[in-house]
């Protein structure tokens, strides 16, 4: 697409799609912004009126707001740390030549293909359940008191489940990156007297930085909106111990039928996501430049 004419033509042909995508994004966002300035409760139809920033005020002063913000960031950060570290480890292991490599790789990818609500239910009822769960059985087998995961450590349990789901994604991306690492570089380092640890630190890790950046950016987007896992396990509780911003918005708009407050929460979540994104791009975005 070098000539002026072909560039114009390509723009013209692209424009319907761009316009559609733009509307697709801007209409819901605009409506959410609009609702967030209304008193809009589904239990009191016909009483909608403009209230300015009142919804935002309520949202920020909600006793659940600060815990939800902290929980959201903890969840995102916790899952990122586990998946990146675990992903690097698994990728390095899977990169070793071994028997049954193909099957093992498919097995590793499997958790990613399970629906979030299903995997959360499996974890809740079959693994972490204090009465019927495998972990409880194991604890009893060792003569220990079974641990009630969702009551004692709700957020940590959810982080575990979500990390389990996202570990395959990180592993897969990092494994592909690892496979593009030049073998001769490794051999050169070996001849230069670098042992496995130094080779990992000086060659593998810098080589993986770009893939790690991609993993962190993509996962952050999805982790900020984790919902199903919370809904089917702890329902945000006990108290607000596992309530995230997404879940708080859900509780306010769906459980209290307050569309205005929910919308305000939604906008706050959007702004938070953007802050996180800007922060991340500042911090690690330079890794994406060639």
């Amino acid at each position: 697409m070098a000539t002026q004419a072909s560039r114009t033509a390509s723009r013209l042909m692209l424009s319907p799609a761009v316009v559609l995508l733009f509307l697709w994004m801007i209409v819901p966002l605009g409506m959410t912004v609009y609702f967030s300035f209304l008193r809009f409760n589904l239990l009191m139809p016909g009483t909608e009126e403009f209230t300015g920033f009142e919804n935002y005020l309520y949202f920020f002063t909600d006793p659940a707001f600060w815990p939800a913000l902290v929980n959201t960031l903890t969840l995102v950060l916790g899952v990122l740390v586990i998946t990146v570290l675990g992903g690097v480890g698994l990728a390095v292991l899977l990169d070793q030549p071994m028997w049954g490599q193909g099957i093992v790789r498919i097995l590793v990818i499997a958790p990613f293909l399970v629906m979030p609500s299903v995997s959360a239910l499996v974890w809740k009822n079959m693994l972490m359940n204090p009465v019927n769960g495998l972990f409880a059985a194991a604890a009893r087998g060792l003569g220990l008191e079974p641990f009630d995961f969702f009551a004692e450590a709700p957020l940590a349990s959810i982080i575990t489940i979500v990390a389990w789901q996202w570990l395959p994604f990180a592993t897969l991306i990092l494994l592909t990156a690892l496979q593009s690492l030049d073998r001769e570089q490794m051999e050169a380092a070996e001849m230069d007297g670098a042992g496995p640890f130094w080779r990992f630190l000086h060659l593998t890790v810098p080589h993986l930085m770009r893939a790690i950046t991609v993993v962190v950016l993509i996962q952050t987007i999805f982790l900020l909106s984790v919902f199903a896992e919370i809904l089917v396990t702890t329902n945000g509780g006990p108290g607000t111990a596992s309530t995230t911003l997404t879940f708080l918005v859900y509780m306010q708009s769906m459980l209290q039928f307050d569309v205005g407050l929910g919308s305000a929460g939604g906008i706050v979540a959007v702004i938070l996501a953007n802050i996180v994104a800007i922060f991340l791009m500042r911090m690690i975005g330079k890794n994406l430049e060639t």
Binding site: E184, E187, A188, A189, M191, H202, L203, P206
Partner: peptide, 15 residues
């Protein structure tokens, strides 16, 4: 105690 020079140079790209 040997040093090798590779066809692809095998330089460390991050250094």
């Amino acid at each position: 105690g040997l040093a090798m020079v590779f066809q692809s140079y095998a330089l460390y790209p991050h250094m």
